[in-house]
């Protein structure tokens, strides 16, 4: 938390002393239909490759022409003011938006070179590869064991009970919950505290060994201590998993991510190294947001 305060502070000092003025600072007036993201949205050998992604809710367009790559084993944070489309975009990556009748997704999203919106791709299989953790902890009203075992069981990943036990134990260990719940795996998952529930949801997600974990504001319903634990967990998980996290807390984005993407009114304004975004943003809107002028 100190880190980002310092960064923001530095930023403000810089701003007052010598306003940031990189060569091609596009002003807010340039945010039109054909806006192109500044910074470095694309990477080499991306795990997820998004090109010209547009999302409509009925008549209303929620996402405009987003181009971004997600590299393997990185933690990418998506920030932006409320209603900017960051959650909507995140939910495109595992086709959760399919479940909303009026939602239409256009453009290409490729996971390891395969177009996930292609007819040949099964959404059920995709969601096993792209796990998601939601804003509000939502464990099933079943036992802790059943919560974690559910994914491997429906996907038929195990044949023997002992293998399933191993998966449950490993997942809970990775989610940092094992020591707290190992003695009452049969008690209800909904009886845990909010932070524990969220870690249970993370354990449930990693139980099917996804390629990438999407996190949709995973800490917004949690207290600071539980939040700190989840952030620590994200740092630990990033060694083995690719994580895309949507957050409305800039401090959190600064703490957990290696790259940050800034969304504004459905457009992807800027993508860059987290450190760069929070210290030397290219775009004036990004700067305005991270310095707290709106949000």
């Amino acid at each position: 938390m100190l880190g980002i305060n310092k960064m923001a502070g530095e930023n403000r000092t810089q701003e007052s002393a010598e306003p940031l003025a990189p060569v091609n600072v596009p002003g807010p007036e340039t945010i039109n239909e054909n806006y192109e993201t500044v910074g470095s949205p694309l990477v080499d050998n991306p795990l997820v490759k998004c090109r010209n992604v547009n999302v409509h809710y009925g008549e209303k367009q929620a996402i405009f022409n987003v181009n971004i790559d997600i590299a393997k084993n990185e933690v990418i944070a998506m920030i932006g003011p409320s209603g900017c489309g960051k959650s909507t975009f995140l939910r495109c990556i595992n086709r959760m938006n399919d479940t909303i009748d009026i939602c239409r997704v256009k453009g290409d999203i490729e996971l390891e070179g395969q177009d996930i919106y292609n007819r040949s791709v099964d959404a059920v299989e995709l969601r096993a590869r792209v796990g998601i953790v939601f804003q509000k902890p939502n464990p099933f009203p079943k036992s802790i064991y059943e919560n974690v075992a559910y994914g491997p069981r429906i996907h038929g990943l195990v044949n023997r009970k002992s293998d399933l036990d191993d998966i449950v134990e490993n997942s809970l260990k990775r989610a940092g919950l094992w020591d707290e719940v190992k003695d009452d795996l049969d008690s209800s998952g909904t009886g845990l505290s909010g932070g524990q529930q969220q870690r249970l949801c993370i354990a449930r997600t990693i139980a099917v060994s996804p390629d990438i974990i999407l996190m949709d504001e995973p800490c917004s319903a949690l207290d600071p201590i539980a939040t700190a634990r989840i952030e620590q967990l994200i740092a630990d998980l990033s060694k083995n998993y690719t994580i895309a996290i949507v957050t409305h807390s800039m401090q959190q984005a600064a703490r957990v991510s290696s790259r940050t993407a800034y969304f504004h009114l459905g457009k992807l304004i800027e993508v860059g190294e987290t450190e760069v975004i929070f210290t030397r943003p290219l775009h004036s809107l990004t700067e305005a947001y991270i310095t707290g002028r709106f949000g």
């Binding site: 969601r127 998601i132 509000k136 939502n138 559910y150 994914g151 429906i154």
Partner: peptide, 18 residues
Amino acid sequence: VPPSIREAALGIGASKVQ
């Protein structure tokens, strides 16, 4: 039934019927 339960199951890769 809270929609969050449906989302949780869908998110983990359960089919509609499941």
